[in-house]
């Protein structure tokens, strides 16, 4: 195959893999926002924290798979704690935004204190490293794994939302919180669960990206900002919006690096500005 074409294709795979990671973070943000009306500014800090947890687990056990399982779980537990202990006390959306931002600052500071500011390498398992050759183009296995993982999570989320009683409650609460209250469902438990799942997804994304970008304290800023832009552009609370925009952004970023190198981050903000100029509430957003 023409090397140019094969380069484009593999760049595209890179983009989709990155888009999938963005989607994992953004959809976690979105289900929390849709359910509770809270934009969790600490979400990306949790995302980064999971990468560090994974680093620790791998350091102790030498097993990436254990990291993949346990790091997101630890993160989810912390997320739930934050929701129970801190977030309940915040008044209004402004209070929530500022409080979660404060928590984000504290997490980042703690990470720097504990692990320093160095980039920590995370070895991916043998089976996922290397390349695989499909119809003449070679792909990095790990990126394909990330895409697969995200798709599995997506299916899992869909099943959870559309096939379970809990999912029904969550969807009902998104459209009418009072009604769910009126049905006598313990909404606080549902909130806690949703917060846990949302943070867990951020954690998965953190673990997934760690072997690609290494683990460092700028991770939250670098990737997190992209995820926030995804949410704004796709529309608050919209999973479909988050999915589409994540893929677009993933591709923009990987091809952007190819053609305009360091100005790739600018492309996303420009894209966001154009979308919002025509649809102030995002691609799939409804009015607040």
């Amino acid at each position: 195959m023409d090397p140019m074409v094969s380069m484009y294709i593999s760049q595209g795979i890179h983009g989709i893999a990155y888009g999938m990671i963005l989607f994992l973070i953004a959809s976690g943000l979105n289900i929390i926002f849709g359910m509770m009306g809270i934009l969790n500014m600490a979400h990306t800090a949790f995302f980064m924290l999971a990468a560090y947890f994974c680093y620790v687990v791998v350091g102790i056990t030498g097993n990436f798979w254990l990291g993949l399982v346990f790091a997101p779980l630890f993160t989810a537990v912390l997320g739930v704690v934050m929701e129970r202990v801190f977030l309940r006390k915040a008044v209004g959306h402004m209070g929530e935004l500022i409080l979660t931002m404060g928590i984000s600052f504290v997490i980042v500071a703690a990470i720097k204190k504990i692990w320093g500011t160095e980039s920590l390498p995370l070895q991916m398992p043998e089976i996922l490293s290397g390349m695989v050759n499909i119809v003449g183009v070679s792909y990095p296995v790990y990126r394909l794994f990330v895409i697969g993982l995200a798709l599995v999570i997506l299916v899992f989320m869909m099943l959870l939302l559309y096939r379970t009683r809990l999912g029904k409650i969550v969807r009902a609460a998104v459209s009418d919180r009072d009604m769910v209250n009126a049905l006598g469902i313990n909404i606080n438990m549902v909130f806690m669960f949703v917060f846990g799942v949302g943070t867990w997804m951020a954690g998965l994304a953190g673990v997934a990206i760690a072997p690609i970008l290494t683990v460092f304290p700028g991770l939250a800023d670098q990737v997190g900002m992209d995820a926030f832009i995804v949410v704004v552009t796709g529309g608050f609370g919209s999973l479909a919006g988050a999915f589409i925009v994540s893929i677009i952004f993933g591709l923009l970023s990987s091809y952007g690096v190819q053609f305009v190198s360091q100005f790739a981050p600018v492309l996303m903000v420009v894209f966001m500005a154009i979308v919002l100029a025509f649809r102030p509430n995002g691609l799939f957003g409804v009015k607040e």
Partner: peptide, 23 residues
């Protein structure tokens, strides 16, 4: 652009633009 949105979207939009300027 910004006066058409309020609340959370306004905050986030500025976060994004602010980061853009920083970059």
């Amino acid at each position: 652009l910004v006066v058409r949105v309020s609340g959370t979207a306004f905050a986030m939009l500025h976060l994004a633009f602010g980061q853009l300027m920083y970059v």
